[in-house]
Amino acid sequence: MVAPSRAPLRADRLRAVNDPRPVAVELNADGSPAVITASDGRTVGPSDGKIETVGETWRIDDEWWRKTISRVYWEVILEGGKRVVLFQDLISTEWFMQLP
């Protein structure tokens, strides 16, 4: 007979690329990020996470109808030249790092 249409399925899933990576951030007196320390034990960059230049900063508030996203982003260049994006989740206050 006709099998139930929600029969067990092969669990195929899209995997996210560039998932945010949790980090700890030391701030300057003006509130801008100064040093990034990895929370997962991996290295952040070639310079112990010291930030050389802080570039653009922007804020995103979105998806209030689903699960609110509220973040402040910082585009920074680490000592040694690596460019990364940092953001602070304004709901959990945690910091994350990802590629631009």
């Binding site: 899209l14 995997r15 996210a16 560039n18 979105d62 990802q98 631009p100």
Partner: peptide
């Protein structure tokens, strides 16, 4: 997307 992790994904 304004959220970098939403822009691309991996599929088997």
């Amino acid at each position: 997307s304004r959220l970098p992790e939403r822009r691309y994904a991996l599929i088997d």
